Simulated scan of single mutants.
Amino acid sequence: MTSSVRSASATDFAVATRPAPRAMAIWLFCVAVMVVAIVAVGGITRLTESGLSITEWKPVTGVLPPLNEAQWQAEYAAYRQIGEFQQVNGPAGMTLADYKFIYFWEWLHRLIGRAIGLAFALPLAWFWIRKQIPQGYTPRLVALLALGSLQGVFGWFMVRSGLNGTMTDVSHFWLSIHLCTALFTLAGLIWTALDLLRLDSIPDARPARITLFTFGVALVLFLQLLLGAWVAGLNAGYASDTWPLMQGRLIPEFDQSRGLLWAMTHDPYLIHFMHRWWAWVAVAVLVTFARRLRSFERRASKAVHTTFGIQIFLGIAVVLSGMSLWLAVAHQFVGALLVASVAWGAHVLGRVR
């Protein structure tokens, strides 16, 4: 009897400590879906000018929104001290009901961020305790956890940059750091999940490697995403509602008084122009990338073609609509899907090189 109990315990332990790459891959894909969702909600937060509605960072107690009138009045009083209210929303006649609307989107954005943190950290601890993480993957998973934690820190630095009494918005530099870190994390989640899926089917498979070609594709796409983040941060989407010309010209007038470098990083008209036309450089590179992919994984090739095609269409539609909220949110959402598709394609080429 004692012997059989010991045998059963030993078997259970062996099962518990066996690597579980497929289960971990599914987990990482689920977290990636949550990251895509928070990118979309972040777009709504930005477009509704909700980002500065919560003026404090409370990682634990901030989970709950104000629950009574006194708490709402306290939050609203804090918001009325910042430049965005004093120079923009206050003179426009903002009411408490208006404030509750923008508060909701910022609170939801932060809540999803906390949910992503738990959805990553708790299963990671579970797999780690049970010794089910395949050899060599622990450092990468810890790095992804660190990136997720940095997202919270970067998000607060972004908010804090707009709380100065003279500011009416967050720094577009901090916004781009916040967004690009999220998209980099998304790509890392997809890449690691694909490595784990391959390991499940081929036990001795080695992780895919990024090639020089795919690094170049990623760099071109990164520049386009960076410019897009600056467009959002500077409200540069409102610089023109015509396409392909801006102000009736191919190259719009822009402020050159502080030099070209300053204009390229601060002037909304020039940044809008660069984002608009660098997109076609990205298209050319992505077409080449997708055509190369076709020989190895047609589904990944189709995903890249589809996402960048929709993204271009949405970008033009956003301009012509005069910055329609939901078209702009869809543009950011599909941008995240494009990053995921490119990560998939780069992984395919990285494992067959």
Results as ranks from 00 to 15, higher is better:
W126E: 06
W126I: 07
W126M: 07
F127T: 02
F127A: 09
F127Y: 13
F127L: 07
W128N: 07
W128R: 14
I129C: 08
I129A: 15
I129G: 07
I129H: 05
R130Q: 14
R130P: 10
R130M: 14
K131E: 14
Q132I: 10
Q132C: 09
I133S: 13
I133R: 13
P134K: 12
P134A: 08
Q135F: 12
Q135S: 15
Q135N: 14
Q135I: 13
Q135L: 12
Q135K: 14
G136L: 09
Y137Q: 12
Y137W: 10
Y137D: 08
Y137I: 07
T138C: 12
P139E: 09
P139W: 06
P139L: 11
R140I: 05
R140T: 07
R140S: 04
L141H: 04
L141F: 08
L141G: 01
L141Y: 06
L141Q: 05
L141A: 06
V142Q: 02
V142H: 02
V142W: 09
V142R: 02
A143S: 15
A143M: 15
L144D: 04
L145T: 06
L145N: 05
L145K: 04
A146E: 08
A146C: 14
A146D: 07
L147P: 01
L147N: 07
L147A: 12
L147W: 11
L147M: 14
G148L: 12
G148I: 11
G148E: 11
G148D: 11
S149E: 07
S149C: 11
S149N: 09
S149Q: 09
L150D: 12
L150T: 12
L150K: 12
Q151H: 08
G152K: 12
G152M: 10
V153G: 14
V153T: 15
V153I: 15
F154L: 15
F154A: 13
F154Y: 10
F154D: 05
G155W: 00
G155C: 05
G155Q: 01
G155S: 06
G155Y: 01
W156S: 13
W156D: 11
W156L: 12
W156Y: 10
W156I: 13
F157W: 13
M158R: 03
M158N: 01
V159E: 01
V159T: 07
V159L: 00
V159A: 02
R160I: 06
R160F: 06
R160Y: 06
S161H: 05
S161V: 02
S161G: 07
G162Q: 02
G162L: 00
G162D: 00
G162K: 02
L163N: 02
L163I: 00
L163T: 00
L163W: 00
L163D: 00
L163C: 00
N164L: 07
N164R: 08
N164H: 09
G165Q: 04
G165T: 00
G165M: 01
T166S: 10
T166I: 07
T166W: 03
T166D: 08
T166V: 09
M167D: 04
M167F: 06
M167V: 00
M167S: 05
T168S: 13
T168G: 09
T168M: 11
T168N: 11
D169K: 04
D169F: 01
D169G: 04
V170W: 05
V170T: 09
V170G: 03
V170M: 06
S171M: 04
S171F: 02
H172D: 07
H172T: 02
